[in-house]
């Protein structure tokens, strides 16, 4: 249990580390340029026959988008990802809230999720294919296996560690149990819940890519494997780079949405 309380600090600190988004546009461009430059030089040397330059990779990326293979692959990858993440979000926040409010639920379920979060659950992914074949269901489940524990645990911890003085305040102004949950506990827990959702989305990306690399040769995973087998390294790097970029962009957009819609107190600051 102590273990789990620490894990939250990681999750929260991850969110708070995002301060780099405040830095000036110029520095961010410099940072990107530095990265691209280092990549370009390493590719020119070259450090390995399998290490294309940055420019080759960008050209390959444009080509993959133009010939439609990247969009097609994403269509197949994003469906189970979206479905799995949405299901995990609802199920995870629901279960986490329940466990935070209800001691019996906490006792029964939280240890399981602590084990699942600390353990390499990726080992289950091949197993999922045995049961559900290599379709959409298996991929969705792979996403959920990875995304659900962190969402449940973050929600649970946020609900359990709710600001005690606000609870007392609500009681002194005659709040009912239901009002306490709706007006104090959930709003107070929401920053950590959102951090959990972002971590869940990140884990979901890992899950869907793993599922596609390991078992179901479709989507982005298939595109990576295919170009590797043909030694089209620039195309392979472009595909991998695109999924990392997409996952990063998704997380940034999620945080932006969170601040826009749910955190009016942070908007001006």
């Amino acid at each position: 249990m102590e273990n789990s309380l620490r894990a939250e600090r990681g999750a929260v600190s991850l969110a708070s580390h995002s301060g780099w988004r405040d830095q000036s546009i110029l520095l961010r461009f410099m940072s990107i340029a530095l990265f691209a430059g280092a990549w370009e030089i390493a590719g020119r040397i070259p450090v390995s026959f399998a290490f294309p330059t940055f420019s080759d990779t960008m050209v390959a990326f444009v080509k993959l988008v133009a010939d439609g293979s990247l969009p097609t692959a994403y269509l197949s990858t994003l469906q189970p990802l979206l479905l799995g993440v949405v299901l995990s979000a609802f199920l995870g926040v629901g279960l986490g809230t329940l466990c935070g409010l209800w001691r019996a639920g906490e006792w029964l379920l939280i240890p399981v999720f602590i084990v699942l979060q600390a353990a390499p659950v990726a080992a289950f992914i091949p197993m999922v294919t045995f049961i559900y074949g290599i379709g959409m269901t298996a991929k969705t489940l792979a996403v959920m296996i990875l995304a659900l524990p962190v969402i449940v645990l973050n929600t649970y911890k946020a609900v359990r560690n709710v600001n005690e003085s606000l609870l007392v305040m609500c009681r002194s102004f005659l709040g009912t149990r239901w009002q306490t949950v709706a007006k104090i506990i959930l709003p107070d827990a929401s920053p950590v819940i959102f951090a959990g959702l972002r971590l869940g989305v990140a884990a979901g990306f890992v899950g869907v890519v793993l599922a596609e690399l390991l078992i179901t040769p479709t989507g982005i995973g298939d595109l990576i494997t295919f170009h590797r087998s043909r030694a089209d390294y620039a195309e392979m790097y472009a595909t991998i780079g695109s999924i990392i970029a997409l996952s990063t962009l998704t997380l940034i957009v999620l945080q932006w949405i969170e601040i826009r819609l749910f955190r009016p107190e942070k908007r001006g600051a």
Binding site: T176, K183, P187
Partner: peptide, 24 residues
């Protein structure tokens, strides 16, 4: 009750905080 640590809801405006007892 008036609390030593204020016990204000950080996500709510001053107006909503003040009206909270009546909202409940």
């Amino acid at each position: 009750f008036v609390f030593q640590d204020f016990a204000l809801m950080p996500w709510a405006t001053v107006l909503r905080n003040v009206a909270f007892g009546l909202e409940l």
